[in-house]
Simulated assay, not measured.
Amino acid sequence: MAKKLVGSPIDIGIDEKSRKAIAKGLSELLADSYSLYLMTHNFHWNVRGPMFNTLHAMFMNQYTEQWNALDLIAERIRALGEPAPGTYKEFAKLTSIKEVEGTPKALDMVRHLVKAQEATAKTARKLFPEVDKANDQPTADLLTQRLDVHEKTAWMLRSILEE
């Protein structure tokens, strides 16, 4: 259980109940984002086959973008006055993304990443009603930016799978 801050209470125009609910949703987004980051980095390291150069470089761009997003999400949770999850145990409880075992073939990696990108987008999208109700524009902006990235990345990955 997190300690209450001694001193100045948070007074940003969002009530405590709403801040906690939004932070919970953002914690789920952070867990999905971290799981997606880890999956993408793993696939970057382990991809093989005729598409090696293309996928190796693409996965690197994707995991680098994902890594940078983790901080933005965690810092928004903190700005709302809640602790950001930061352990594998917490992420495992919060994520909607299933861990991939073994080393899939290259196109199966792409399929897994499409699903993980889409799952992360759905996690971000489901938070909008709470964010809208609380009139929380900074979180809405963060969610919109993340949705744009995840939907575009899923589209690009799906394009690889087309005949």
Score class of each variant (00 low, 15 high):
residue 19 R to M: 07
residue 106 A to H: 04
residue 30 L to D: 01
residue 53 N to W: 12
residue 116 A to G: 14
residue 128 F to K: 10
residue 86 G to K: 00
residue 98 K to A: 14
residue 69 A to L: 12
residue 118 E to G: 00
residue 38 L to D: 06
residue 22 I to K: 10
residue 141 D to Y: 06
residue 157 L to Q: 00
residue 129 P to K: 10
residue 82 E to K: 04
residue 142 L to G: 05
residue 71 D to E: 13
residue 59 F to I: 10
residue 117 Q to K: 13
residue 81 G to C: 08
residue 34 Y to F: 13
residue 130 E to P: 00
residue 34 Y to T: 09
residue 36 L to V: 03
residue 153 T to N: 10
residue 102 G to K: 10
residue 70 L to E: 03
residue 79 A to S: 13
residue 131 V to C: 07
residue 68 N to Y: 05
residue 44 H to E: 10
residue 65 E to C: 07
residue 13 G to Q: 11
residue 138 P to Y: 07
residue 141 D to W: 05
residue 103 T to P: 04
residue 106 A to G: 00
residue 63 Y to P: 01
residue 70 L to C: 05
residue 150 H to K: 14
residue 90 E to D: 14
residue 152 K to I: 00
residue 121 A to W: 08
residue 153 T to H: 04
residue 104 P to H: 02
residue 32 D to F: 01
residue 151 E to D: 15
residue 1 M to E: 03
residue 126 K to W: 06
residue 72 L to R: 12
residue 135 N to V: 03
residue 52 F to V: 07
residue 82 E to L: 09
residue 155 W to E: 02
residue 45 W to K: 08
residue 53 N to A: 14
residue 45 W to I: 10
residue 16 E to L: 09
residue 97 I to A: 06
residue 81 G to I: 09
residue 39 M to C: 05
residue 138 P to M: 02
residue 110 V to Y: 00
residue 55 L to F: 02
residue 2 A to Y: 02
residue 162 E to W: 09
residue 126 K to R: 15
residue 67 W to C: 00
residue 156 M to K: 07
residue 2 A to L: 07
residue 22 I to P: 10
residue 105 K to Y: 11
residue 127 L to N: 14
residue 159 S to N: 12
residue 54 T to C: 08
residue 64 T to W: 07
residue 82 E to P: 06
residue 156 M to Y: 11
residue 25 G to S: 12
residue 1 M to A: 12
residue 135 N to W: 00
residue 143 L to T: 02
residue 46 N to C: 05
residue 38 L to Y: 01
residue 67 W to T: 02
residue 150 H to P: 00
residue 123 T to Q: 09
residue 150 H to L: 09
residue 149 V to S: 11
residue 69 A to T: 12
residue 108 D to R: 06
residue 57 A to L: 15
residue 143 L to V: 14
residue 61 N to A: 13
residue 104 P to I: 05
residue 38 L to N: 00
residue 103 T to I: 14
residue 19 R to H: 09
residue 38 L to G: 05
residue 134 A to M: 05
residue 35 S to K: 06
residue 60 M to H: 11
residue 55 L to I: 01
residue 132 D to K: 10
residue 95 T to Y: 06
residue 4 K to G: 04
residue 47 V to P: 02
residue 69 A to I: 10
residue 96 S to L: 02
residue 55 L to G: 01
residue 68 N to Q: 15
residue 98 K to D: 10
residue 111 R to P: 02
residue 153 T to E: 07
residue 21 A to Q: 15
residue 110 V to I: 12
residue 100 V to C: 07
residue 63 Y to G: 03
residue 58 M to L: 15
residue 96 S to P: 00
residue 19 R to K: 12
residue 146 R to T: 00
residue 109 M to K: 01
residue 161 L to S: 09
residue 142 L to H: 04
residue 60 M to G: 07
residue 160 I to N: 00
residue 143 L to A: 08
residue 146 R to Q: 15
residue 125 R to M: 06
residue 36 L to S: 04
residue 67 W to K: 14
residue 93 K to C: 04
residue 76 R to N: 08
residue 99 E to C: 05
residue 94 L to M: 13
residue 120 T to I: 04
residue 15 D to N: 15
residue 103 T to W: 04
residue 46 N to G: 11
residue 76 R to W: 02
residue 64 T to K: 09
residue 37 Y to P: 01
residue 7 G to N: 13
residue 7 G to I: 11
residue 53 N to I: 08
residue 126 K to M: 03
